[in-house]
């Protein structure tokens, strides 16, 4: 389990993230939601253990009972992988080369043949084999996300079965079309669950969250609104308190999950997201 306690991050005294507690459980999908600027990506960065220079960080993160700061970067890189919101390649690499970067953490432990075997396994798994020699920047947004997911899964493909592994997705659906959004979250959540990984995802689409999340975290203005299992926290009042919109929550006619229709009321509310 990754547990964040009292996580804060301030820039020049302004709280981007304010005393947030949260947990990521192995085998479960945790989705964090909130308006723009609510601190979702900041929370992800803190849980990922990213260098927090540029602001004042407070609070602590524990990974399976150990303090995150005590874990060597290399080991951490094999316990959790982060799928970035957007990747701009400085110079073009091929799809296979990007995926191979996933095993750089254990490069010396593998022979070239073993590396190629694992790369082609994950290319296969994500139906990328026909694209393996293509230049990464020429792929569509959905294909690029799949390549990065393959890289992350390879990164977490350790030989030690007893270790918990975590996949953090920073707005994985940004810049994807409606179908790709659904497909990608379905794929990532499915593959991670199959492998017993804990998934932490920043999402904007309430219905994607309602469908795929086990646990939900709602943030507003850097503060925690509520966190917990989907069934107990996904309510009209939570959504109202987080997004300032009313909504209708029904049973999904075709799937075993809630269906949410937002009903924006009155004039749009442009009050700053992080009022002091």
């Amino acid at each position: 389990m990754i547990r964040g306690t009292n996580l804060s991050w301030r820039i020049n005294g302004r709280a981007i993230l304010d005393s947030v507690d949260c947990e990521i459980h192995p085998g479960r999908v945790t989705v964090v939601m909130g308006k723009n600027g609510a601190g979702k990506s900041t929370l992800l960065n803190r849980l990922a253990g990213y260098d927090s220079a540029g602001g004042e960080a407070a609070g602590a993160v524990e990974v399976d009972g150990r303090k995150l700061t005590d874990i060597a970067p290399k080991e951490l890189g094999q316990k959790r992988a982060v799928l970035a919101q957007s990747v701009y390649l400085g110079f073009p690499l091929s799809v296979a080369e990007v995926v191979e970067i996933g095993c750089y953490g254990r490069y010396d432990e593998m022979t070239g043949r073993e590396r190629r075997r694992r790369v082609s396994h994950y290319l296969d798994l994500l139906e990328l084999t026909s694209l393996k020699d293509r230049s990464f920047p020429t792929l569509s947004g959905g294909e690029q996300k799949r390549v990065l997911l393959a890289k992350c899964l390879l990164q977490l493909d350790g030989d030690d079965a007893t270790t918990n592994r975590y996949l953090l997705l920073d707005e994985p659906t940004a810049a994807l079309d409606v179908e790709q959004q659904y497909r990608f979250v379905h794929l990532a959540a499915g593959l991670a669950r199959e492998r017993g990984m804990g998934v932490f995802a920043v999402l904007h689409d309430l219905n994607l969250a309602a469908r795929f999340a086990d646990d939900l975290i709602f943030l507003k203005g850097g503060k925690l609104v509520v966190a917990g299992p989907k069934a107990s926290v996904l309510t009209k009042s939570t959504i109202r308190n987080t997004f300032d919109v009313d909504c209708l929550i029904q049973d999904h006619p075709r799937a075993d999950c809630p269906l949410i229709t937002t009903l924006p009321y009155g004039k749009p509310n442009f009050a700053p997201a992080c009022a002091p």
Partner: peptide, 17 residues
């Protein structure tokens, strides 16, 4: 190579950037 994907990427892979 990892830097080509960005410093954050290199950092999360475990390189001491």
């Amino acid at each position: 190579n990892a830097f080509l994907l960005g410093e954050r990427e290199a950092e999360q892979l475990g390189f001491r950037v």
